[in-house]
Design a binder for these strands. Structure first.
Lengths: 150, 150
DNA sequence: TTGTGATAGATGCAAACGCATACAACGAAA
DNA sequence: TTTCGTTGTATGCGTTTGCATCTATCACAA
C-alpha cells in the first residue's frame, strides 16, 4: 500500500530531524559543523586516502559545496589534499594527525550521545531491526544503480 | 551496547541521505525546494492556520531561515501570513488556494516516488516496523520534553 | 499604571550553499 | 598526434543559511 510507505518515510524524516536537532544542540563539536564532522568521520573509516567523488556519494551536499568544505578543512590543517598520481585530474584526501585527533575527540562524545538518544527509546532488538531495514534503503534503489558489481 | 545504537544511527543517516538524493533528483518539484515543499505539506495537514514556531518544531531549519522561507512563499502567493489576533506577537500561516493546489500536485507525484522507493526495498511488515521505531525516536528523548501534557 | 522578564518573529551580516560552467586530464578514435 | 567526448574537481555568482541581535507583545508583579 502506498500509504504505508509514505507513513514510514514521514516517520523516518521526523526521527532524523528530531535527532539531528538534538545532537546539533550539544556542545561537543569543537567548532565543526556536523557536515564537516561527517567528512572527518568518513575519512577516518577509510584506510586509504579518499577521492572527493567518493565522499560525495556518501555526503548529502553538492559537489562544489563539498569541494569548498574540503578547502576549509585543509586550511584548518585537518585534512591534506594531494593530486592522485594515478589520475591527475583527481585528488586524494587524508586526515592529518590533527584531523584524526579532532575526529576521535568529537567522535567519542558524539557516539555517547547517539547511544544515549537511541538506547533511551529502543531496545536492542529494535536497534538491530532499524539498522537492517535502513541498510536496505541505503543501497540506492533500482534506477540509480550504476555499479552492480557486489 | 553503544555500538548497536551507533550502527543503527549510521544506517538511518545513510538511508535518509540516499533517499533524499533520489527524491531531489526527480523532476516533480515545480520550482520548490524540498524544504519549501515540506512547509507546504505540513501546513496542508493542519486544519487551522499554523504558527511559525510550530512549523519550526517540525522543520530542520533555523527560525530566521524559516521566517525568510515563509517570506518567499508569501511573495509567490502560496501562503498568507496574518497576525494572530489572540497574540499579536505571533503570526498565523495558511495556504492560499494556489498553495494548496501546488502542494497537492507535487504531493501526489512525490507520494508515488516514495512508495516506489520504499516498497521496492521493504515488505509491508518492514515498513510498519520502520514507522513504529521511527515514531519512538521522533518524540524528543528525555531532556528535551517541554510539554508532557499529552 | 508602570516596570521586568520572557516569548514570537524579523533583520543585519558574514558564511555556506546550489547551479551553471570552466578547466584540466583522461581514453579512444581518426 | 590530434581531436573529441568524458570525467574529476574548481570557480563565478546569485541565493539561502545561521548567529547575533532587535523590536514588539505578552504575563505578571509592584
Amino acid at each position: 500500500m502506498t500509504t504505508t510507505a509514505n507513513d514510514a518515510w514521514e516517520a523516518l524524516l521526523s526521527a532524523h530531524a528530531a535527532l539531528i536537532k538534538r545532537f546539533a544542540a550539544e556542545d561537543i563539536w569543537q567548532g565543526l559543523s556536523m557536515r564537516e564532522y561527517d567528512v572527518l568521520y568518513t575519512l577516518s573509516k577509510c584506510p586509504h586516502p579518499q577521492r572527493i567523488g567518493e565522499l560525495h556519494r556518501h555526503v548529502l551536499l553538492s559537489q562544489p559545496a563539498l569541494s569548498r568544505l574540503v578547502d576549509r578543512l585543509v586550511e584548518r590543517g585537518l585534512l591534506c589534499r594531494h593530486t592522485d598520481p594515478a589520475d591527475r585530474r583527481g585528488v586524494r584526501l587524508s586526515l592529518t594527525a590533527a584531523g584524526r585527533d579532532l575526529q576521535r575527540q568529537v567522535g567519542r562524545r558524539h557516539a555517547r550521545s547517539v547511544a544515549r538518544a537511541l538506547s533511551g527509546e529502543l531496545d536492542a532488538g529494535e536497534l538491530r531491526r532499524l539498522e537492517t531495514i535502513c541498510r536496505k534503503l541505503a543501497h540506492d534503489g533500482p534506477g540509480t544503480d550504476k555499479d552492480p558489481s557486489s
